[in-house]
Design a protein around this nucleic acid. Structure first.
Lengths: 257, 257
DNA sequence: CGCGACCAAAGGTCAGACTGTTTGAGGAAC
DNA sequence: GTTCCTCAAACAGTCTGACCTTTGGTCGCG
């Protein structure tokens, strides 16, 4: 019956072509890709080149299927792909539908976190790689934060430091520590830095934080944090960067495989 | 193959309780999330906590549906979500099935590229943010590259520089430029840096590269690149970083909104 | 005017069937 | 004993058509 008589695919295997040696495919490419991927690709293209803007509502799934010449199930699988990449969002009900979404930084961070976590599980990524990347980002971030700091940032930093001092328990303690560093990144006012740095923090915490660090270690952390905040407060970009470098080099010991 | 006899355990049926008279749900108001999301979440959890290792083969879709108490379509939608995040990979044929995949850095880069591109389309991210992040990463990367350079890197850099000099056409030219910077990142030997920096390059090229930069501009770029390579070759970390900083500051003008 | 019953639109779920692809096993030909 | 062909099994991919659930609007009654 009506099955894709004219889908967008166009991949027909013609048994009758005893193709002369003219064109053996350069790469023995696997068969045409699944329909749901082709649909997803076409929709993604429309989103990326701006034909579909954030907020736009797509036709109902059934209609989409009609347009592409595929069934509703296939359309839905394509939409799942796009939704899981944050490109669309579906809502139920009569006013519902599929809408072009604006990418949420938090979503990107979550994705990065799981990806980095898994890559560090295999040997694609080492702990040293992660620590190094973190230092590259954060040392200069501390400098930027010193340059662009606003009172609320300094206040937040001092408050976080206070909570850190009095926190008990490894996980609570580390959460506050992460929060402290997070504020510094945020103080740079650069959203891209946040997106890239946050997941690195979280992977370090969840996979590499050593379970037994002596109390004295954290006391030293407190002192180093204080130095960093003071220099950020003073607008001393150079000094803040140096203090951060010292701090990060030292706490490397708190992480291991 | 003695693959898991009880592969994905714990298929909790809960989706459709023909509510026994005793227990009308305490807070029935907000319905559960879609079944395909719950399935995807459960599988993702199993992957993240290591219960399912890379290479493991999941039961056929039909069996999975049985285990979870949902239909095959629902399972497939869940698998699309996981596949589009690079967590699983599906293969057809009798030896096919759904396998736990190892995350590919290239895939993560692609995802980041589209996400950054879209965020820079809205006002979540500005061009200045992207340029700034790039500098933070690359200046120190140049220093690291100088420290860890290997002959093949230096050779590749000089070759790329040569091709760059003689390339004609905006897009070709810029591709070579990007390639040059890519090699430096690669020379750091840090995969995480590659994953984070490559997409930034590509977004700059595809969305922000000014279409008309004078010929003299590129000549200057060539000279700056030469300085950078020389210092990397000499193992001069400090100098390489400085040269890169100068270079990046100057080519900011080549990008605009 | 307000409230409740009903309806319509859209996504969510399901069951079943069929298609296409990939291998491996079993023979047949050499 | 190889090499090749054919067939069958196993699986993902696709389609159809139905029904359920959610959600907001509409209409009518009080």
């Amino acid at each position: 019956m009506g099955q894709g008589s004219t889908p967008s695919t166009a991949g027909q295997n013609d048994a009758t072509r005893a193709a002369p040696p003219a064109a053996p495919p350069p790469l023995p490419v696997s068969r045409l890709r699944p329909a749901y991927q082709q649909v997803a690709d076409q929709l993604r293209e429309l989103i990326l080149n701006g034909s579909l803007v954030s907020g736009h509502r797509l036709p109902p799934e059934a209609d989409l299927g009609g347009n592409f010449g595929v069934s509703r199930s296939t359309v839905r699988e394509a939409l799942r792909v796009l939704a899981s990449q944050g490109l669309v969002r579906t809502v139920r009900g009569t006013t519902g539908g599929t809408f072009i979404a604006h990418v949420e930084p938090d979503q990107v961070s979550d994705y990065l976190e799981t990806s980095i976590g898994l890559m560090s599980g295999s040997d694609t990524l080492t702990l040293a790689d992660i620590l190094e990347a973190r230092e590259m980002l954060e040392v200069r971030a501390a400098g930027l934060a010193a340059r662009r700091r606003e009172p609320r940032h300094v206040d937040a930093l001092r408050a976080a430091m206070e909570r850190e001092k009095h926190s008990r328990g490894r996980s609570v303690r580390f959460n506050e520590h992460r929060h402290f560093h997070g504020i510094i990144i945020e103080a740079t006012g650069n959203g891209l830095l946040t997106v890239m740095t946050e997941p690195v923090f979280r992977v370090l915490q969840s996979r590499f934080l050593s379970p037994d660090v002596p109390r004295e270690f954290w006391a030293q952390v407190d002192r180093e944090h204080e130095t960093i905040v003071d220099r950020i407060d003073a607008g001393d970009a150079e000094g803040a960067g140096e203090a951060m470098q010292v701090h990060l080099s030292r706490i490397r010991d708190a992480y291991h495989d």
